[in-house]
Amino acid sequence: MSDAADLVGALDVRYLRVLVALAEEGTFTDAAIRLGTGQPSVSRTLARFEDLLGVRLVQRTTRSLSLTPAGEACYRAAVDALAALAGVVDAAQGHTRPLRLGYAWAALGRHTSAVLRAWREQRPDVPLEVHRIDDRTAGLRAGLVDVAVRRDDVSDLNLHVEPIFEEGRLAAVPVGSTLAERDFLTLDDLADQLIALSSAAGTTTLGLWPAAARPSRVIDVTNTDEWLLAIASEEAVG
């Protein structure tokens, strides 16, 4: 049996990454995708980690996995350790790693350009990269961004959610339609229309309507451009 110092010397950062990815993704397949490797490699790395520690960290079942109590404790410690290692790299590079902001739809609205300007003034040392990513998690899931703007209900314990502001909802209708002459609309006014929405990236689902009054005709678009075009062409409302 090695003593603790020897075990630390034998640790590989990949062990920590694999444990964190498994804990947060929930399957070997998704952990492998996050790490950009194959499932056999994830399994092998985890097995080596468990052999080294002499403890089982992950309980495998046919369809999914769960962490053992030791795995849970190790996961939390691994998160801290990886953050500390990232801090070493940041210190060496003078904190110049860009901050990547993702959004799927409408970013921070009318505040967006003010935020970009204020950031350039306050932290000229850290470039802010803004990416539109046509995915509900706005790139968080794939690890493409450091922080994302979200308008959906996030119930993932691995994510911190910081509410920033509240906003109202609008209907988007073709300018030539009678709906466009109204001062306001209700869901009932729109239920018999073809509805353009984006199941991948949008802020609205048919769940907004009561089950009995749900629109029957829907066109699924990928992003804001396609959505605006479907409405402007008088094909749909959104």
């Binding site: 947060e24 932290r123 994510l159 911190h160 910081e162 509410p163 502001f165």
Partner: peptide, 17 residues
């Protein structure tokens, strides 16, 4: 209404966040 939130992974917090 809609709540607009900033969301980040607790395991990878950017130093300038």
């Amino acid at each position: 209404g809609i709540t607009v939130s900033l969301v980040w992974p607790v395991s990878r917090v950017h130093p300038a966040l």
